[in-house]
Every structure is written in structure tokens, then in C-alpha cells.
Design a protein around this nucleic acid. Structure first.
Lengths: 136, 136
DNA sequence: CTATATTCCTACCAATCAAGTAGGTTGATT
DNA sequence: AATCAACCTACTTGATTGGTAGGAATATAG
């Protein structure tokens, strides 16, 4: 099973693309879709999520598109992934809207899953979009 | 999205159960299912996988059931999970049978996913079933 | 040899999610 | 007014999850 689906991966690639091609003006989805080899129609589903969460700025109409609203250093991979994936819980028990587990108190494995979740959060929180950009 | 589904989690709990109730003789699935609150019919799907991979020994007929074939220290969480889950790749690109990605050489995110995969493997390889057993 | 306990096997199923496609509407610029 | 571009709703296809159902094979105890 996979932790991160195309939604999260594409979102990340889009943000990196926006950062690498930042010129101050809006970049149309079409351009990003072409460059990244992602279907425009599929992107149309992913971008609004990012915009509604104030991660990027968008503009409709001619000359419109998207652009970042902060420097790349301020975008943490963790934030982008959790927004698009919902939660990065390793197991259902640790999901945001998980129903209380009866066996929680006696569960031998729960502490391990929690520790792993911590490690995961730390890992992706320590990587920014700036770190992922092509240097030079 | 979840990394580990019930199959992997249940398998792990079963192995721990077998370790904690080890008396040298075979323990029937029914007993494990009751104790762990897992459907017998669902367990019937999971156990054969473990047996075919020599993780546990099984016996049919009266007095039959399953038992471990090594000490709990020798069972690494990583092994049990990968057997039952297939692969613990964080993204599709890193799956065992992933088709070669065109963008691999220029992908900004691939190194990150690879590093995360390493961390994951290290984490679960350093935990054994003995570590998860109830002490005392 | 038979009753019973137990695994083993094949098939089925409902719900959810992934990964898109399709088509039209609204909004902004030139 | 033409055009570009985001926005919105709905649909589709395939795979996966998390089971269920029923019976066949196997082994032991009496």
C-alpha cells in the first residue's frame, strides 16, 4: 500500500514548478500541466484545494493562473502533503476521524505506530520546497 | 492514505499473540481470532501467507493450529509487514513492480521519497516481536 | 471407522478510493 | 466581443479493502 498518492505528489511537483518558474506574474495551469506531464483536467481538481488553503494565489481570466504567496523556504513538504492527502497516518487507528479503538489500552503495536507517525512528520517538516528546487 | 492496512496489522498482532501464548503446541486460529477480536474467516486468508513464507508452522486437523518456529527476537516487524502488505513503498514510483518513470532523472522529489523509504525500513527492521510483547 | 476439530480453497460481494474524463459556466483582460 | 483561464459538477473505470460463504481436505481421539 502507498502512503502518498498522485494527488499529493502532483501537488508537490506543482509547487516546485511554480517556485522554479516564478516571475511575479501568474502562471496558467496549462503551462504547468504541459511541463509536468500531468493532465490539465486532473490538475483542475488539485489546485483549488491549495488555493482555498491560502497556499497559492490564483486569478481567473486572461493573464490568470497561479503563483506562490511566500518564499519557497516557507513551504514545508508536510503541509502540502497533508492538505492534499488528508492525513498521513500510517494506520487507520491514527487517522484524524478514527473511531475510538476498544483495544487501545492493551494494544501492543499502537506505540510503535505513533512513534513512526512522529518520525514521518519530523522528516517531511524538515524539508522545504526550497530544498527540493534545482540549484543553480 | 494509509501505509499499513488491516492485513499487515492483524498479521503482526497474530504473531505477537502466538509469541505470548507459546506453549510448544499448536494454537488454533479460532482461539487467536477470539482473543484478538478478528473474524475467523478473515484470518483464514492471512495465515496461509505467513505459513507459505515459513514464518510460522501450521498443522491441520484436530489438535492443529499454528505456532512460531523461531524465538520472538528473530521476527522483525519489517518482514511481517512486507510479506502481508506486498511493499511498504511510500509512493508508486518506488514500488517493486513500478514501471520505469520517464522523469526519474529530473525528478526533484524522488531522492526525498527514497530517503523516507530508507528511514521506514530502518525503523521497522529495528523492532522485533519480542520488543512488542508484554513484559512480565 | 467414525465423529470432531481444524486448516485449506475457491468464490463472491459491497464499499471505498484512485486517477482520471467530460462538458459547460463564470470571470477577467485586451 | 473575443479569448483565455479558472471554476464547478458529474461521470467513469479499475483496483483495493475488508470482509463473507460454503464446502473439501486432513488429522486426531475415541
Amino acid at each position: 500500500m502507498k502512503l502518498v498518492s498522485t494527488r499529493g505528489r502532483y501537488a508537490l511537483r506543482v509547487i516546485i514548478d511554480l517556485a522554479e518558474h516564478d516571475s511575479g506574474s501568474y502562471i496558467p495551469m496549462k503551462e504547468i500541466a504541459m511541463r509536468q506531464g500531468i493532465s490539465l483536467k486532473y490538475l483542475e481538481q488539485i489546485m483549488p484545494v491549495l488555493m482555498k488553503n491560502k497556499v497559492i494565489d490564483g486569478a481567473s481570466g486572461k493573464g490568470g493562473g497561479y503563483k506562490l504567496n511566500r518564499p519557497p523556504e516557507d513551504y514545508k513538504v508536510w503541509d502540502i502533503l497533508t492538505l492534499t492527502e488528508g492525513s498521513l497516518a500510517p494506520v487507520a487507528c491514527l487517522d484524524c476521524d478514527a473511531e475510538k479503538c476498544e483495544r487501545e489500552s492493551e494494544c501492543r503495536t499502537l506505540p510503535m505506530w505513533k512513534k513512526y507517525q512522529e518520525i514521518t512528520e519530523d522528516f517531511f517538516n524538515n524539508i522545504s520546497v526550497a530544498d527540493l528546487m534545482k540549484k543553480g
